[in-house]
């Protein structure tokens, strides 16, 4: 009988551990993320999408604007996945590079601005919750994540320019470097 009871206790314990983790997150992470989401959603609504489109049109000529400033602002304003739609202002040749950079900004900024990519928040939050458990501030990690991202995502976009040229030669095609806009 005792064996059955301890077996049952062990079984329940499997889920109790998970429940403790869950309710701790519900008490700490959920309210904070929710408040941030509301504030960010409001700011984005008030600023409007048109302004970021204007910036995008002017950013296609310069690599620093193209792979650092625009994807950072775009990720903040339009969030994942609509940040990729700004790529339509780029020449064909640079679209893969913009994508490469923007997709990474959807993560590296996500620590401070969780509205950008809430569906994949746990890439950051999974690791950061360990930091929180130690009683250390998560913000330090989030800020450095953002800063390293700012530099490395730019480099990532730039390197994609080179790999695109390589694949172009491999496949024997040439992508246009001129912006083409129908509308």
């Amino acid at each position: 009988m005792d064996n059955i009871v301890s077996l049952a206790e062990g079984f329940i314990n499997l889920f109790q551990e998970g429940a403790d983790v869950f309710i701790e997150w519900m008490g700490t992470i959920v309210p904070l993320v929710l408040m941030l989401l509301i504030a960010m959603n409001t700011i984005i609504q008030l600023i409007g999408e048109n302004r970021i489109n204007t910036i995008a049109q002017k950013s296609s000529s310069n690599p620093l604007l193209r792979y650092m400033v625009l994807p950072f602002l775009g990720a903040f304003m339009l969030a994942n996945p609509m940040v990729h739609s700004l790529g339509r202002f780029m020449p064909e040749k640079y679209k893969p590079s913009y994508f490469a950079s923007a997709a990474q900004f959807a993560h590296t900024s996500n620590g401070i601005f969780p509205h950008i990519n809430p569906a994949e928040l746990f890439i950051y939050l999974g690791i950061a919750s360990g930091i929180q458990q130690l009683g250390l501030p998560m913000t330090d990690l989030a800020v450095r994540y953002l800063l390293v991202g700012l530099v490395m995502n730019f480099i990532g976009g730039w390197i994609t320019d080179l790999t695109t040229s390589y694949v172009e030669r491999q496949q024997g095609v040439k992508l246009s470097k001129k912006v083409k806009l129908d509308n």
């Binding site: 990729h84 339509r88 679209k95 913009y98 490469a100 790999t163 992508l175």
Partner: peptide, 23 residues
């Protein structure tokens, strides 16, 4: 993602391997 950027078919064919290599 490249579809969202209204990329042409050629660009997607080049872009997929290109981004995989750069990653």
């Amino acid at each position: 993602g490249l579809g969202l950027a209204e990329a042409e078919t050629e660009t997607i064919e080049v872009g997929v391997p290109s981004v995989l290599y750069s990653r």
